[in-house]
Design a protein around this nucleic acid. Structure first.
Lengths: 232, 232
DNA sequence: GGGAATGATTGATAATAGTCAAGCCGATGA
DNA sequence: TCATCGGCTTGACTATTATCAATCATTCCC
């Protein structure tokens, strides 16, 4: 593994507090790989052989059932995915594929579990990471169950605006078809939903979103930190 | 705290592996309380002052937004809830209320965090619990996004049947209005959905569910371990 | 037992979301 | 430059789900 990747991974919250020795042991069997876009990395149901760390690019976590599929999350650098499956030694619940050209580190799951068993600091870091993941999914669940698709989109727009630095105009950072799937609707409906936001002062041209009336949009979206804040 | 409750809690996976000393420290500030049915225990947004352990009865975890509400999970003995909020020292994402008369142990969150910081075995047990919770929510998310309400109900019926010991006739263990909320639909629609399962050999009288044609129901429901198995 | 309250069901209707088919539009590449 | 492809949009239609109102069934309490 190249030194740069080694340092990048070491600086992750998940690995920052463990001993040098344990970190080295963890990295011994690990390797970094470059993947092109649209490559399947793992399939749900497979045994969790590797903990994945996205160093660059982005990864789509999705799931399939009975011919349908849905995107559940996007993983962006630098973050890990499938940690829960790894520590439980259980099959993946989600599939993963690259959204773009991506550099990904693969750490053998058995090494993660072995170090986890002896390194209390690592175990505590895993807790933080899992608690964060858990709370993220719960928020997403609330978003899905408590809001209509138009409300979900309105709040998504506000969240993206915040990520972009509170500006009034910004770009969507993923395909609309995928955004539709993430938001739990069809691409056709997403198109119509964007039109449905026009009365609340949202304009969309291609991937550019412009918020003309912040107050009106917020009055409609009713954003809630317990659903929409990533930090809470 | 009575000795019986002390022992019950000690035997939970979450607390079984920690030292006697740390467990005693954890229990020092803890107490057990009896609650009648339909009592609000916590409200989403509140600081996470106590880790809750359900010793008897049952608890509904739910959430509210913009005048709507939805049930997210049921906690049955013996299990904890709001562990993620406790370890992260973050506000509750869900509210909780008793569904029936319940006995609940309350452990001060700051004690949990303090012991967590010094007891590696406890930290590892927390990981297991959180990973389990995380995977449960992910499965529920898949259930919601990939299935229609009729399919969700069909699979719920199959899951309940399994819980009841693979018998062909069993009883629903919660109010239908709450079941509707858990499954992400209205009570009216749940009524209609039960009728919609008649062609697949499901009969409902009051809270009694009878499966007349197991094969037909399974062919329709297409249960999947990566969504429906609690153990995976 | 006789209300009263609560939950369950039903029917009618409206809102919401999905499907299918066609056309549009912009990026890509010969 | 043009053709092609994939994704996006639109329209028409269908399916699904929610809402509202009324009724029915149960339980609970006096």
């Amino acid at each position: 593994m190249p030194d740069s990747a080694f340092a990048e991974i070491r600086n992750l919250d998940l690995f920052a507090q463990m001993t040098d020795e344990n970190f080295a042991a963890l990295m011994r069997g690990a390797y970094v790989q470059n993947f092109p876009a649209q490559i399947d990395l793992i399939s749900e149901g497979d045994p969790s052989d590797f903990l994945h760390v996205v160093l660059s690019g982005s990864v789509d976590l999705f799931s399939t059932w009975n011919g349908r599929d849905t995107s559940l999350a996007t993983v962006r650098p630098i973050a890990t995915f499938i940690l829960a499956a790894t520590v439980k030694d259980a099959p993946y619940l989600m599939s993963a594929r690259t959204l773009e050209k991506s550099r990904i580190a693969l750490i053998p799951s058995q090494d993660v579990r072995a170090i986890f068993d002896v390194d209390g600091n690592f175990a505590r870091a895993v807790v933080t990471e899992l608690a964060q993941s858990y709370r993220t999914v719960v928020k997403s669940q609330k978003d899905l169950k408590l809001r209509t698709s138009l409300e979900r989109l309105a709040n998504y727009v506000l969240r993206q605006q915040k990520r972009s630095g509170e500006v009034s105009s910004f770009f969507l950072e993923c395909e609309k078809r995928r955004l539709a799937s993430v938001l739990g609707m069809t691409p056709e409906n997403l198109s119509r939903a964007f039109k449905g936001l026009v009365p609340y002062g949202v304009q969309v041209e291609g991937t550019r979103v412009t918020i003309l009336d912040q107050g009106e949009l917020e009055r409609f979206a009713k954003p809630n930190p317990l659903i929409d804040d990533t930090s809470v």
